[in-house]
Design a protein around this nucleic acid. Structure first.
Lengths: 235, 235
DNA sequence: TTTTGTATTATGTATGACATAATACAAACT
DNA sequence: AGTTTGTATTATGTCATACATAATACAAAA
């Protein structure tokens, strides 16, 4: 009686490479042993003999973990656990040219969501200095400067400042990452609907609303400000 | 005249490893040559001699790119460019036990932002079937089931469904990733302020609002629904 | 024409060697 | 003593080589 496999249907065989599995093993090792930032992990040779694979494989796996900022290695010291910087990891692959269109569009939408949803953090944490700075940024706003490059620069500065006001570093870095994608989607013919350049709530008006510290009002103003983008997504 | 360095102050020396630089080189190579998904890259030995480093180093760099889903390698075929799955990359390091407290808190805040900010996508794309499903999820809602585990399960189901309604896969996967972090922050003593279990807008009420297809109203309702969390962050 | 075998090729894994940086500790000096 | 300097040691970083393995093309056999 030949037992090909237990349940009479072909089970898909493990196609993952040895390095993949070792990488996983090591991560599991870290979490299971509840190791924290600063703790050091076994030496390469120990891992090598513990897992029964060559040092080459161990090193490739560790190299990966180093890349995502989970480890840091020093000669003679060995490797210690570090807190990964999520954003810099994302940054490596968040290149508009390398992502597929659907993902790009979805990232575009995510940024819109964040921009509106972070209202509470903005109005809660904004300082007088922040407002002063915002006013400075939008100083040349009203006279409708039609220098596109200038407008874009202000756009970036203004929204960048908003993220800064949230005092949320992760969010801020995230936005820095999303920005190129956002611009790419905005400019390339990815969105079918045309760009209507109708003027909705201006940056200046947004500042006025922020000053009232009314989160709800700010959300609405921001939603209005972004209407150009939304109208390209929806009919 | 000894020229130590040009501008009379110690320049910080490049401490990055060879693999780091090779990794960067390869990514640059891809983008500069405008290579797209499906294109194949030079063989390991070609890269090795082109960059003047050993195959070991090349392989470590490629292994990293493979991990983040930027490449796929097959024996005999070589490596081809693939579209990286941002989320699965993040997943590798998005473990509450491995992130530092500040980052965890910031992720917590990001989720709150998204949840409120995605209102427009929800009301724009929600179908009758979606609403039916939501109603089913919240069916046991009003009688105040005090079985905590049950409540949590419903919580996850409900909010998960909301993300699904946005029809934004990236967002949805992102939420899946954020969820454990969110729960971790929520439960562990990371947030100083106590948890007041006052009842704000219920899930059922949220569904009612969704049915009106009024994004603004939904944002406000959701903000209200999340008040418990916000009040732990702010005073 | 289809199948089967075989050579080839590029990646996957293993091993051994040496370079290099960090560390500890002993030796030398003030 | 206390500081500096040298030296051995250790673990990671890099290199070279060899062989295993899967995918492919193509020839040989049925």
């Amino acid at each position: 009686m030949k037992k090909i496999n237990t349940d009479n249907k072909l089970q898909k065989i493990d196609t993952t490479s040895l390095v993949d599995r070792v990488e996983k093993s090591i991560i599991e090792f870290l979490t299971e042993r509840n190791l924290k930032v600063g703790d050091s992990i076994p030496k390469e040779l120990e891992l090598s003999s513990a897992l029964g694979v060559s040092r080459t494989v161990i090193r490739e796996a560790l190299s990966r973990l180093r890349m995502i900022g989970l480890l840091e290695s020093k000669k003679k010291k060995g490797s210690v656990i570090t807190s990964p910087d999520l954003i810099s990891i994302l940054g490596k692959s968040m290149d508009p040219r390398l992502l597929d269109d659907e993902t790009l569009k979805e990232i575009f939408e995510m940024r819109l969501s964040l921009e509106i949803g972070m209202a509470d953090f903005i109005v809660e944490r904004v300082t007088e200095d922040d407002i002063k700075e915002l006013r400075q940024i939008v100083a040349n706003d009203p006279p409708r400067s039609f220098d596109t490059m200038f407008l874009i620069e202000e756009e970036i500065k203004f929204h960048g400042k908003l993220y800064e006001i949230t005092r949320n570093e992760t969010l801020k870095k995230f936005q820095k990452l999303l920005l190129p994608v956002f611009n790419y989607v905005h400019l390339s013919g990815l969105l079918k609907k045309p760009m209507i350049n109708k003027r909705y709530a201006s940056h200046k008006e947004l500042v006025d609303v922020i000053e009232t510290r009314d989160a709800e009002a700010f959300r609405n103003a921001m939603r209005n400000h972004l209407e150009n983008h939304f109208s390209r997504l929806f009919g």
